[in-house]
Structure formats: structure tokens, C-alpha cells
């Protein structure tokens, strides 16, 4: 029992040893792959697309041709290799270079105005239009009968011609 146990544990140690070596190899092998393939240009660009560099105003980082932007893309690559996530990288850029690197202002403080203002004005517009349309309802029943007068004469001609036509087609 004892012996058996000992043999087993020796076997076990050996196994663990081999597994460890194998794992180490795997890891280093993986690292080699990572250095070649990860991150690809496309992966870098996917993040760069959402960033704006102050050197080229209003052009996303992934397509900006300046040297400064090329360096920024290299920085993204560096951080990705170090295992940073997209949000971490973006946060790093904000801390380094300010809010202007983001494609839209972060929703906090005064910046809420960016997002609130358009809907508020639009709702205001809807209210104005609604008030105008409400006037209709009051009078529409009475007016609806004779409101054709202003209609396009030509359109009416066509409508009439079409009606005649449709009737003929129905008959035949």
C-alpha cells in the first residue's frame, strides 16, 4: 500500500512535471504566435476608428495619415499586446489627451446637454405641430365637404380619367 502509494506519487510528480513543461512550451509557443499575429492591423483599427487625434481634426484615428497618429496606433497595439481591453485603452487615451479623443462627449456634467437638447427641442416642435393640428379637429367636420376647391386641377383631371378607366376595366 505504502509502496504502491509511493510509486503512484512518483508517477504523479513525473506527470505533473511533464504537464508543466508542456504547458510552459505551449505558453511560450503561444507567445510567439501572439507577437506575430496579435493584434492584427484590423484589430488595432477597430479601436482606432472610435478615437480622434487632435493633430488631424475630425478624421478618425484609423485613417489619419500623420506621424502622430501612426504613433497612436502603435500605442494601441502596444497596449493590446499587454492585454488591455478596448475600454481600458480608450480610458487611457482620455486620461492622456482629454475628452476630445472620443467620438462623442462622455455623458456627464455639462455634456448631458449634447444628448438632452435635441430631443427636448424636437418634442417642443412636436407640441407646436400638435397644437396646429388640434385646430383642425375642431373645424374639420364642417369643412371637409367643400375643401376640395383648392386641389390641383390637373390631379383631379387625372383622377377622373382614372375613375372612368377603372369602371371600363371593371365592366370588361
Amino acid at each position: 500500500m505504502n509502496y504502491k502509494n509511493k510509486a503512484f506519487s512518483r508517477y504523479k510528480i513525473r506527470l505533473i512535471f511533464f504537464v508543466l513543461i508542456f504547458l510552459l512550451l505551449m505558453i511560450s509557443f503561444n507567445n510567439v504566435i501572439a507577437q506575430n499575429d496579435f493584434p492584427t492591423d484590423d484589430q488595432v483599427n477597430a479601436i482606432a476608428k472610435e478615437l480622434y487625434c487632435p493633430v488631424c481634426e475630425n478624421i478618425p484615428l484609423d485613417v489619419c495619415p500623420t506621424q502622430a497618429c501612426a504613433q497612436w496606433r502603435a500605442l494601441i497595439k502596444e497596449k493590446m499586446t499587454a492585454g488591455w481591453t478596448k475600454d481600458e485603452i480608450k480610458q487611457y487615451f482620455v486620461e492622456q489627451y482629454g475628452d476630445r479623443v472620443l467620438a462623442q462627449p462622455p455623458a456627464r456634467g455639462l455634456n448631458w446637454l449634447v444628448y438632452i437638447m435635441p430631443p427636448v427641442v424636437f418634442v417642443g416642435g412636436i407640441v407646436v405641430v400638435y397644437l396646429n393640428l388640434k385646430k383642425i379637429k375642431k373645424s374639420s367636420e364642417k369643412v371637409i365637404q367643400d375643401s376640395n376647391i383648392n386641389n390641383d386641377k390637373y390631379l383631379k383631371e387625372i383622377e377622373e380619367a382614372l375613375n372612368v378607366l377603372n369602371k371600363k376595366e371593371d365592366l370588361s
Partner: peptide
């Protein structure tokens, strides 16, 4: 209009330059 003018407002009141870009 708002997206165009907002960076000015932000700079005036917070001193922070911002970009209002395509996603907005």
C-alpha cells in the same frame, strides 16, 4: 447645429475640448 456649436459651449464653460463626431 447643436453638434456643430456644442464644442464651443463646452470650451467656454468647462475649458474642455470635445469632439462631436459621426456616432452622435
Amino acid at each position: 447645429f447643436w453638434g456643430t456649436v456644442y464644442p464651443l459651449i463646452s470650451e467656454l464653460f468647462t475649458g474642455q475640448k470635445v469632439t462631436v463626431g459621426p456616432p452622435f
